[in-house]
Simulated scan of single mutants.
Amino acid sequence: MTALEFTLPAELEAHEPPEARGLSRDRVRLLVGHRSSDTVRHHRFTDLPGLLAPGDVLVVNTSATLPAAVGVTGGELTVHFSTEQPDGSWLVEPRRNTAKATEPFGDAAAGDSYPLVGGATVTLREPYSAGRLWIATLDTAVRPYLDAFGAPIRYSYVHRRWPLSYYRTVFGTTPGSAEMPSASRPFTDRMVSRLVSAGIQFAPVLLHTGVASPEAHERPYPEPFAVSAHSARVVNQARAAGGRIIAIGTTAVRALETAAGADGLVHPANGWTDLIVTPGRGVRVTDGLLTGFHEAQASHVDMLTTIAGPRLLDHTYTEAISAGYLWHEFGDVNLILP
């Protein structure tokens, strides 16, 4: 088996948050892979401080999750709000409601308008990606409307609705992501304090992630990001001193690597990134990655291969499936170290 060819057993899908399984956020399982030896070890997330070294930097995404799913009046469809565009329009994905959650809806057309709960109307202007995302406008201010009438985006493997607080992380200070930057979900205030006490530094970055493509596994599209002068300085100084740069989530990798020059120095930057990390492109700054477990066809697999290497990635996913690790945003996590 390779990480690109496995079939995920249904019993390894996390159907609810760990809190509903009797665990605190920071008690999920942590599978640690070491690229230097292509070995993996089993831990709990609470072991993280002992797996890092003083001077290491954790790059964290401060984007907070929006209540980005809104029902269409009549109950047949749900609209997922994805990414605000520079002109004030939004990318949206209309999806058909099912008994479990939603599924792709292929019958939308330019000019279609949908009455939403709460009295708003969304109008599809033009297609953005084939059969899925649309450039659309809402006849009221989107953010306040979502706060009043939206709910977290939920796919069929999560069997019931959970409040927005379950989809937000301890680092999320700036609402803007359609879906949770879930790699940082296991962090708690206590864990952050333990890490700081152990000499671990944090470098906040921002990347607002749009709606996933769980059926088609499309490549990421351009997303807004920002890397501050402070975070660039923290990363550059740590690298010069021999510290390791560990990204918390694929979104943090995308933001950080966008801001990194060919010389390996990180510069303050903001705007939109269309960067896709592949083995051919490589990474300039990122030494390691904490992330959830991804499906075999997921677009993130190229990034994982880049950071872990194909041998370690294969070993990691074989072991994760054998040992019953859980997938998706409420599941377990994987730490890739150099």
Rank of each mutant, 00 (worst) to 15 (best):
E223I: 07
F105D: 12
S113Q: 10
T291E: 02
L30I: 08
G74V: 08
F149A: 10
F149H: 15
G199L: 06
T2N: 14
L195H: 09
Y114V: 06
G309M: 08
P152H: 09
V234C: 03
L275K: 06
V122Y: 01
A178C: 12
I200Y: 01
P310F: 03
P224I: 02
G71A: 15
R44V: 13
D107K: 14
V266L: 02
V60Y: 02
F171A: 03
R284H: 07
G282K: 01
A183Q: 06
R125S: 13
A260W: 05
V283N: 03
R21T: 11
R21M: 13
T251S: 15
V57M: 00
S213F: 07
L12T: 02
F202H: 00
L326M: 12
T306C: 10
G243C: 00
S177Y: 09
E215M: 14
F149Q: 12
A178T: 07
D189E: 15
T305V: 15
R25T: 01
H208S: 11
H300T: 11
H315I: 15
F330M: 04
A148H: 00
H159E: 14
H230T: 14
L164Q: 05
S113T: 12
G242C: 01
V170M: 11
I321P: 00
L31T: 07
G71S: 14
A101K: 04
L12G: 03
T2H: 13
S197K: 15
T46W: 08
G288H: 07
W162V: 04
F330V: 03
P18R: 01
P224D: 07
